[in-house]
């Protein structure tokens, strides 16, 4: 019973990972890309790991997969937070259609919203 269910989780995880990579290519600037990458990769990778747990059950491998799910969920948002914060402080441009940037406003720096199309 659990083995086909495991395959469902693994396949769904792979699909979400693929969509995340597509977002990485299609989205216009670093910050939007980071959003796509973080969310899809978290759920995709957790899906794959959870699928492995369902297939192997409470074995050495399955438990390791479960522990890895916990670490991925805690650490991926932190990594994306650190990367995007560093980019903002170092002035990586926001997309030209960005509505507002209260972070740079509060820091008192010059606007880093892009004025022309990067392409």
């Amino acid at each position: 019973m659990t083995e086909p269910l495991g395959w469902v989780f693994i396949i769904a995880g792979v699909i979400f990972n693929v969509l995340g990579c597509l977002g990485l290519v299609r989205f216009p600037d670093l910050y939007n890309r980071m959003q796509a990458a973080t969310k899809s990769v978290t759920l995709g990778t957790c899906g794959i790991l959870f699928g492995i747990f369902l297939q192997t059950g409470f074995s050495a491998l399955g438990i390791k997969a479960l522990v890895a799910v916990l670490f991925v969920v805690i650490n991926l948002p932190v990594a994306s937070h650190a990367l995007s914060r560093g980019s903002l402080i170092n002035g990586v441009k926001l997309w030209k259609k960005t509505i507002k940037d209260e972070f740079t406003e509060d820091r008192g720096g010059a606007s880093i919203i892009d004025t022309e199309d990067p392409e």
């Binding site: 989205f27 216009p28 600037d29 910050y31 939007n32 903002l88 926001l94 509505i99 509060d106």
Partner: peptide
């Protein structure tokens, strides 16, 4: 067509 309206809010 990318439907994005991004911004940084506090």
């Amino acid at each position: 067509g990318l439907q994005l309206r991004p911004g940084i809010v506090r």
